[in-house]
């Protein structure tokens, strides 16, 4: 189980139409990700990190080549199938949290479960458990506007994790946070990665995040420059909060 391959990217190229000429954001990428990885896509701005995460999350389609996520070829999924894939199997964490401001913390975390088939009691239990993971059970009835940035990002981690997805895609999750909060959220994610064997893929520039990664993939101009395994990455136990 530990090393089973859950994402396979084959000869993936992504081009955008820019008026007359095309712009190539990803060129001929080949990658595989295994279950339980804690991996970062690192590279300068415009190197294609977000583009690659979006394709893995089936929010976007490859121009050429293929991305196979949990056995599904992203380019062949219907709207509905890709919605189901995201709903059950992929969690997203965004730089700007993207919490729904009119809902409470509880409602935000519950949202993905509402699209699935659960009883009220099951949902209640799952949401409170997820809020426990991120240490925000006591803020369940708060609105996002009443939370700090770090707390918001923890809510969004709970929202991504509540359905226990196989994959979590986090695009610059620490970019809007200070050092202490960055460490805190990345440690929270690392803990969940260990305990639930969830695959995490980050897009990041953040040195603080990189210390915790098991694998770092360097992108530049849409190409893989380096793909490094980090044998001595930090775990949550290395740093006290």
């Amino acid at each position: 189980m530990q090393n089973s391959e859950i994402i396979k990217i084959e000869n993936l190229t992504k081009r955008y139409h820019m008026g007359e000429n095309d712009f190539t954001a990803l060129r001929n990428i080949n990658l595989t990700f295994s279950k339980g990885e804690f991996t970062g896509l690192v590279g300068p701005s415009g190197s294609g990190k977000t583009t690659l995460l979006n394709i893995i999350g089936s929010l976007d389609n490859p121009t050429e080549g293929n991305a196979i996520v949990l056995g599904n070829s992203v380019s062949e999924l219907t709207h509905k199938q890709s919605a189901v894939l995201r709903n059950y199997h992929i969690g997203f964490i965004f730089q700007t949290y993207n919490l729904l401001s009119v809902y409470t913390v509880f409602d935000n975390v519950e949202f993905a479960l509402l699209l699935q088939k659960h009883t009220v009691a099951e949902r209640q239990k799952m949401v409170m458990e997820a809020l426990d993971w991120v240490g925000l059970a006591d803020k369940a009835q708060s609105k996002p506007a009443q939370l700090s940035g770090g707390e918001c990002q923890r809510v969004s981690i709970a929202r991504a994790m509540v359905k226990r997805p196989e994959i979590v895609l986090a695009d610059e999750p620490s970019a809007n946070l200070d050092a202490a909060n960055s460490h805190h959220i990345i440690q929270t994610m690392k803990k969940l990665n260990r305990e639930l064997n969830t695959t995490f893929i980050f897009a990041t520039h953040d040195e603080k995040v990189m210390q915790y990664l098991d694998r770092i993939i360097h992108l530049k101009d849409g190409r893989i420059e380096k793909d490094l395994i980090m044998p001595d990455s930090k775990t949550e136990s290395h740093v006290s909060l």
Binding site: Y88, N98, R159
Partner: peptide, 10 residues
């Protein structure tokens, strides 16, 4: 976009 990322169809 967030609704779609969370698994809603358009």
């Amino acid at each position: 976009g967030t609704y779609i990322a969370l698994g809603m169809t358009r």
